[in-house]
């Protein structure tokens, strides 16, 4: 009881979104994994991408209380943006990353007016509809996106002109890790800022925020734009490191997965969400190579159970541990 209330207190005041122990463990673990699993760097890179994507969505759902069933649209948009830019010859990775981020952010900004209004239900529908629209558009524009075959065969120039992407995926991992660290620090700054506090205020009570003079729509527009941009960066990193962009990066399943990861991680808890993404990515890899259909069955059962148990998610668990120790 005391643990839970202390956790709630820490989330409301000061906004210490788990930057202490759990975050240190996360970063130490990420660096250590590079040396511990040199043969699985491609998979580890994918975990970093998944964590970035989850954190981008968590800014919306966990902090702003905005649910979306179409966040993969931005992820896929970023992936295609980076891939298409690289194919036209501008294959500098940082240029591609910036292009993907800006493009996804702009699309998110344009979509904001139709998404921030309405209730959860219309929001779920509109995001789902927009994502389906983007998916169909990518499917139809075969000349640009390769349609169902995906977009393979593009070269990415060395990072900063110095570090060439190697066959073992070392540079890819380091590149993804650097982007992830940047995103993490940036998001942590955002959610602990007065703006982040205002977002949580909107989540707790949308009606009362305008009464204290908080511009709800503008805050949500900023959150949505940032979230879309970061999701686009995650997609770009995946496309650049795997040298492939495909339709499933835009798909419904990816949107549903990220919603689940953010919720299981404990909405609004950055370290918790990152660990949830890690656990999810690892389980998915293990189970789906063993048997895709049992993976889907397991995923479904975990999703159903998650609604009834572990309501604070992994983040709640981490807080609980921390506060019990310090108390």
């Amino acid at each position: 009881m005391t643990g839970a209330s202390a956790a709630a207190r820490s989330r409301l005041f000061g906004g210490r979104v788990g930057i202490e122990g759990a975050t240190l463990v996360l970063f130490a673990g990420a660096i250590a994994s590079y040396f511990l699993f040199p043969n699985h760097l491609a998979l580890l890179t994918q975990f970093l991408v998944l964590m970035m994507f989850a954190l981008s969505y968590d800014l919306l759902q966990g902090h702003g209380g905005i649910v979306s069933l179409g966040h993969a649209a931005f992820f896929g948009l970023g992936a295609y943006a980076a891939a298409i830019l690289a194919r036209t010859g501008y294959n500098d990775p940082l240029l591609g990353l910036a292009f993907a981020a800006v493009l996804s952010a702009v699309v998110a900004l344009v979509l904001t007016p139709i998404i921030v209004r309405g209730n959860d239900f219309t929001r779920l529908l509109v995001t789902l509809g927009v994502a389906s629209l983007v998916y169909e558009a990518a499917n139809r524009m075969r000349g640009l996106t390769g349609g169902a075959d995906g977009l393979p065969d593009f070269e990415i120039a060395p990072v900063l002109g110095l570090y060439k992407f190697d066959f073992e995926g070392r540079i890819a991992f380091i590149y993804a890790f650097m982007v992830f660290a940047m995103v993490y620090v940036f998001l942590w700054r955002v959610v602990t800022s007065p703006f982040g506090l205002a977002l949580r205020g909107i989540r707790e009570n949308t009606r009362r925020m305008p009464a204290i003079g908080s511009p709800v729509r503008r805050h949500l527009a900023v959150a949505y734009t940032l979230s879309g941009g970061i999701a686009g960066m995650a997609g770009a990193v995946l496309a650049q490191t795997s040298r492939f962009a495909s339709l499933d990066m835009l798909g419904f399943e990816r949107s549903a997965e990220i919603m689940m990861v953010a919720t299981l991680g404990g909405s609004g808890h950055m370290a918790g969400v990152s660990f949830a993404a890690l656990a999810f990515g690892w389980l998915k890899d293990v189970l789906s190579t063993a048997s895709p259909k049992y993976w889907q069955l397991g995923l479904g059962i975990v999703l159903m159970l998650s609604v009834f148990v572990a309501r604070g998610g992994i983040g709640g668990l981490l807080d609980h541990l921390r506060f019990r120790r310090s108390a």
């Binding site: 649910v67 259909k293 069955l297 479904g300 159903m304």
Partner: peptide
């Protein structure tokens, strides 16, 4: 909330779809 209903029903749909495949 809507989120819990969505998560539960997506989970149910995944499980049923997988069961049909099996």
């Amino acid at each position: 909330g809507a989120l819990q209903q969505v998560l539960f029903s997506i989970g149910l749909a995944f499980a049923l779809s997988a069961t049909a495949t099996i």
